[in-house]
Structure formats: C-alpha cells, structure tokens
Design a protein around this nucleic acid. Structure first.
Lengths: 252, 252
DNA sequence: CATGAATTAATATCTATACAATAAATCTTC
DNA sequence: GAAGATTTATTGTATAGATATTAATTCATG
C-alpha cells in the first residue's frame, strides 16, 4: 500500500487554507508583524464560507503562528521566547529576573568556512558559519560557556549582527523564526578549558546542553552550552496535552 | 482590575462542554477505554447544536484525551507514553531498544508515614507514601539510581503493586493518568552512596533528574533519578507549535 | 460457510446566517 | 483640542442543515 497522501497536500479545505498561510509565514514571505487578509477577504480568495476560513485561522492562532484581534485584524506572530515547552533559555533574562547583574563577553568571533561539524557521534556537512564563543556571568561569576555556530546560508542577517556585546541566543530568537529544535542534555566533567573559563576545578560536574535548531530542512544554528553544575538547572513543566504551560529555566 | 474569570469556568459553550467531559476523564469517572456519548446525545444533553459539541470534542481529540472513530464512536484515550514533549523516560524500554539486557533491582521498598518531603529548596507536606529505591542497569552496568515516592492518597492501587521485580515508573505510566509534570535537570557530583551504587568514582559527574507529577492539584509521585553522566543523556526534540513531534531519551 | 453487497451509525466537513464582543476610528460637544 | 459618545471593521461564537466519509453490521447469494 503506497502513501495515502503523497503530495503532502491536506485534502480538507480548512487544512489547505491553513497550510497555504503557514507556508507563506514559514517561507518568510510574510515576516512577523505582517497583516494577514481578513476572514472575509480570504473567504473570497478561497471561494468558501467564512466559517471554514475561521477554522483554519483559529488553528493557526492556537498554534501560535498568528495573533488575532477583533477589529484590529490578524498579524503574523513574532517568534516567542516562551512558546516552546522546554524553552530555549535566555540566560540574561534569567539572571535579571533574579536581580543579578548579567555579564556577557565574546571570546571568539569568526567566520568559519563550510565544513563538517560534529554533534555527538554524527558528522554533518554544513555551509559557512559565524562562530562565537562566549562566557555569560551572573554578578561577576561565570555561569556558562557557549560555543555557537550560526549558518549564514540560512540566516544571512547574522553576518552583520553585533555579537561583541549582545549574546547571539536572544538575537536569534528575536529575528529568526524556527520550526524545530533538539536539545541534548547530559552531565560532563569540566575539562581544562571549561574549568578555566568557569573558574571551577577540573573534573567538576557540568550540565552540557547541545542544541540544534532548524527551519524546515535547513539548520539555523548549533549551540554547545556548558553550565556550572552547582549554579544552574533546567526545569521543564508540562502536561501530557499540548495546551499546557511552557517550561522555565532556573539559576540555583 | 480583578480576575476576569474568577470561577475558572469557561464562558463559551464549547469550552464548558469540553471542560465537563475533561473533568470526568481526569477524575477517573470515565477511565481509559470508556465509550463517550455520541455527538447527537451530547447535543441533547447540553441543549445545543451538534457543531458546538463537535468543536469541543475536536479540541479534546487534538489534545489527545479522546480517540474518535467514524461509526465506532469516541472513547477515552489511554495514557500514552510518548505524548509528552519531553517524555518521561522508560529506562527499560530504552535499554531494550538498543539491544541491551535490562536489569532492575529494588534496594528499599517501604511505607513512609505522612511527612515533609524536600525537593530542591522547598518543603511539602504530603500524605503516606510508598518509597522505593532501585537501581537500573544495562548489560549488568548500573546506569541509574532512583528514589521514588508514590503517594497512596492519590494512587491507592500502588499499595498492592509489585515493585520488587517491576520498576514503578512504567507501572505508573500505564495505570495512572496525569495532568502535569515538572522535570528539574542538573549536573551533580556523585556522593559516596551514589558512587557505590553506580560503581563510579566519588565526584564523578552525574545527571540528576527530579520529577514531580500531578493529577489536578494532587501530587502523584516524586522521583529523584541519578544517571551516570558518561552513559546517559536526555534528548528533547520539539517545535514552537504544539503539533510537533515528541521527545526521546537516549543511552550513549 | 464464505464472500461480497447493502445498510447504517457515527464522525468530518462545509455552508449560510446571525448575533455578540472588542477595539479602532470617527464624530460631537464643550 | 480634549473628553466622551458613536460608528464600524473585525474576529468570536453559535445555530441549523447538508453532504461526505468511514467502518461496523447485516443481509443476500453462491
């Protein structure tokens, strides 16, 4: 028995409408903030009833792709920090939320030619990237060492961004819509380089978060973050159903 | 400005219908497998149109609480292992998936009187619990030390379960519906007891997962799992929208 | 009995319409 | 021109009905 829906085109009308709008958002044709046609206009465009358009739009709204307001209309949502169930941590915001003074310093910032990058045991062939190694601190205490690759094919704007004083994580979240992320979390012992950067003993337990983020098939960024084990934890709070609250991160 | 919805009762009709059915499922009045009244019956019960019932049911279905089939009707879904975005790991299944021989041994199994339990820096007053300390291994190598409390007020059936040969995690997942879970993930150094149980050096990096699971307001279980840092990682893969694939765990 | 055709019970989708709720825009009045 | 009232554009919810789709069941036929 072959695939029942080979062209990936949903067969129901409201699903097709949803897919059409979603495609324009994810492709970047309708960037965040773009005003989307009204239900009445879409009803004419697609030659169907408003209820059908409404079903498609309601689905996009609960998915967080668009924001709807009575009278004001519907706009493409900007990428939201807290939308993910295990959210992508913004260390600066976490430190500030606890009243600490956040510090950021870039140690390395360079362009890297297309190469094979290793994540875990796999190797990937990837295009030119901007590579930034940075240290993040709270009240002068180093908390996190981060190695980040941003792939310029997928995110050309990253070539001009200022990562000397601004951490790349929040910049990416604010500017780049993503469709998928993978976190890999493990415990490692600090090696000499990490121990020096974090001012801990060699062999001290650290939390390693390796993250890869995609838009569609395209890899946007790969991050390798090493947190001080005694200063950081990751917290994810969620329900078995998708409408549940998102996660948080916490400094101990 | 006070709370706009103090009684927590949704004001729209389809949301009230959804809430009514959801309540019966979560309370256990309609356990998994129960046949739910047809749309036509509910339409009469609630005195509304079938479309309104349909909207409520469609929402429950996408949330994964019910399973709908044409002609066959609608039944309460059974709790699914993989529904959570960061899923609750079933170590036995993970080991088996990699062709390893899974081992489980309970070190302690006792009833504990109502007391205050500490999780992180907070203390909670909780009822009588069954406490099980166990070691999980892969091919004879200890991977995980787990301390688990199961609260008998919330899960009375746990008093009779056999945890001498069956790990409590999968038993809970199979028997107890839950509404919310919190994971707290950090890196710690192995203390003497953990080092002995896992056969690693004292001070070796370990991944600590503290998990608390609720049904409604009631705490079902608290688990403290210490994984060998060099043998385990947690992987979460997800999208910014709720219709994305779930997470996995992995043994390295 | 076995096989296939017809029936039927249930969900799935779509339409057309109505009215409610919200907030932006506009107008009135001082 | 500022404050308040009114209009209006847009989304949100609900209804009643129509038709499509699916799969369990029953029935007919060999």
């Amino acid at each position: 028995m072959h695939d029942d829906n080979p062209d990936r085109r949903p067969h129901t009308l409201h699903a097709r409408i949803r897919a059409a709008i979603e495609a324009r958002i994810l492709s970047g044709e309708w960037p965040p903030g773009t005003r989307i046609p009204t239900e009445t206009e879409l009803m004419v465009d697609f030659g169907c009833s408003r209820m059908t358009v409404n079903k498609a739009m309601a689905s996009l709204a609960t998915a967080g792709l668009i924001v709807r307001n009575r009278r004001a209309g519907t706009v493409v949502a900007r990428p939201r920090m807290h939308s993910a169930v295990l959210h992508i941590p913004d260390i600066g915001a976490e430190v500030a939320a606890r009243g600490g003074v956040y510090g950021y310093a870039a140690l390395t910032d360079e362009l890297r030619p297309p190469c094979c990058v290793h994540l875990g045991s796999e190797g990937f062939h990837l295009g030119q990237s901007r590579f930034v190694r940075s240290v993040h601190s709270s009240d002068g205490v180093a908390i996190l060492v981060e190695d980040r690759h941003i792939f310029l094919d997928a995110v050309p704007a990253a070539a001009q961004a200022d990562f000397a004083t601004n951490p790349p994580g929040p910049w990416l979240l604010a500017h780049v819509p993503w469709t998928e992320a993978e976190h890999r979390i493990s415990a490692i012992a600090a090696d000499a380089a990490v121990a020096r950067a974090l001012a801990v003993a060699t062999g001290a337990p650290c939390l390693l978060v390796e993250r890869r983020t995609w838009r569609g098939q395209e890899t946007l960024t790969i991050a390798r973050q090493v947190f001080r084990g005694d200063a950081f934890d990751l917290t994810a709070r969620f329900g078995p159903r998708p409408d549940s609250p998102g996660g948080t991160t916490g400094l101990q």
